[in-house]
Design a protein around this nucleic acid. Sequence first.
DNA 1: TTAGGGTTAG
Length: 676
Amino acid sequence: MKRHILGSRSKALLFLYNYNNAAAAVGIQKLFSLSARFGTLSATQASRAKLIGDEDSETSEDEDWFASRIIQDKDLLRSSPHISGTGLHVLDLVNCGSLEADRTLYNKLLHRCTQTTQLKQARIVHSHILTSQFKDDLPIRNTILHMYVKCGSLDDARNLFNQMPHKDLVTWTALISGYSQHDRPQDALVLFPEMLHHGLEPNQFTLSSLLKASGAVSDDNHGRKLHTYCFKYGLDSNVYVGTALVDMYARCGHMDESQLVFDALDTKNEVSWNALIAGHARKAQGEHALRLFWKMLREGFKPTHFTYSSVLTACASAGSLEQGKWVHAHMIKSVVTLVAFVGNTLLDMYAKSGSIEDAKKVFDRMVRRDVVSWNSMLTGYAQHGFGKETVQRFEEMLRIGIQPNDITFLCVLTACSHAGLLDEGQYYFDLMKQYNIEPQVSHYVTIVDLLGRGNLLDRAEKFIREMPIEPTAAVWGALLGACRMHKNIELGAYAAERSFELDPHDSGPHVILSNIYASAGRWIDAAKVRKMMKEGGVKKEPACSWVDIENAVHMFVANDDAHPQRVEILRMWEMISMKIREIGYVPDTSHVLFYVDQQEREVKLQYHSEKLALAFALLNTPPGSTIRIKKNIRVCGDCHSAIKFVSKVEGREIIVRDTNRFHHFRDGSCSCGDYW
DNA sequence: TTAGGGTTAG
């Protein structure tokens, strides 16, 4: 490293710049005047380059006084706990002999690099230490390793680790936690047996890092082994380890065990609660997550950004607008600022709960929007059937220079597909290259869907054949869906075969193919598909619908006879059914999967879960109010048609959320334009 | 000197 001989003026300024301490603060007025006089510095922007190049020869009396005042007070300066700036100026002082590099100084420098996460500077400090007496010092080396981890360079950390002839528990733990924190859980996990082999026993730091890693790979076998180590070393009651256990079981899908570990914790904190709540939110167990949130509040814990983020995700998955609004209100009372993370989940909650207007309000009020904010807003528009708005917003996003990612393009392509914007969809698919985003299989699925919906079935098939990556079951599934829409039996059967080969257990393509045959009256073929499903153990997910009435969720399954208001619900639907037939509703019986006579098919259709939920809502809500229904699978074609008529005869807005979008029924038509 | 929790698609 080049040595610099600094003049007293520069030294003084450097000290002042590098050490935040009281003595320096006393002289801050002096610094302003000096800086102004030399014209090279501003008090807050003193740059290293300018200072180092400034070989000072003439100093005024004033400056001399100032420099000596500071330097004489070296002990006080050195007792300052922190170094500001890059910290490298301090090394220059060491190089020119003005300052002695001891353990404390190196620790301060390493700490500074860990804070700023500047790898380049971290390496300079490391090489400086290599020239010193501390080059083989174990605690210093561990700190360097940790610094590299925090700077995100696991390669530097690993190189250092490999070069260390003597390693202690901290060395191993620092690298394990490094891998665990930087999305390399396997690398973290393989180190553990090696560490044990060297005769070291894990502590709470090691175990919490390893648990995080096994949660990340969803390996409960590994997690359970670690759990026994926690018992062995009496660390299972440590709040960090305990929380990591709660999180590990949750990520492995064992919510019951996660809860058990949580309940057994003597000491809980808000992070423990967050881990449990986030677990339920991830599993789309929205109601459960919400109950835990209220319980957490009752027990006196203060929610954090993490809590709100998880709880709002839970509300989004439950589609519970009322609950979501409660959580939002609570957040406002708690004076939690709308940082991007929470803002994004809030926006997403409103969009997924059916209120695109509120989602837009959140978006407009956000102080800072990142790519996720934009993606969430675009997704909201797309799912609510506003295809053109999605495209306009996307163009706006590009205009103001937000870099789109693969999800952005997926939103836009989906919107184009749903809105029948054929040319735009193809244009945006090509545009991905300009943004250096490699299309993934999901993007290909969307283009197949786009072409297929536009009745360009042959082009869609050709597109699949020419794909540079292997088509998946989803790609053929998209073609199959289009074949149902356009009643192309032969190509549909072919696409279904390809889909079965690639994913034999997915019930979706089986049901669609069966529907294609049924709607063409080919009952024998439809029956063959059903037989195939039965023999292959392919089960169709039972359809159910939910409706929120006065903060209570009511669930319905087809032919539901368990509901206390069963008789009234059926009577209501019969009455509605008569009304809508009068204005033109004709039951579309092709949506009944198997062969039964016409009358029986109509009866089966009448008791689809969404119709029962709708009848229930009509019975229990004031006239004219909006009805919100959620469904676990795609809304059936006959129900879609019936609900359109109901929205007209009852003068109601009916919003139905199915697995991938919203249908806003109003005055006899649907926002999806019957194109979903 | 080393540790645990959160967002967007289909």
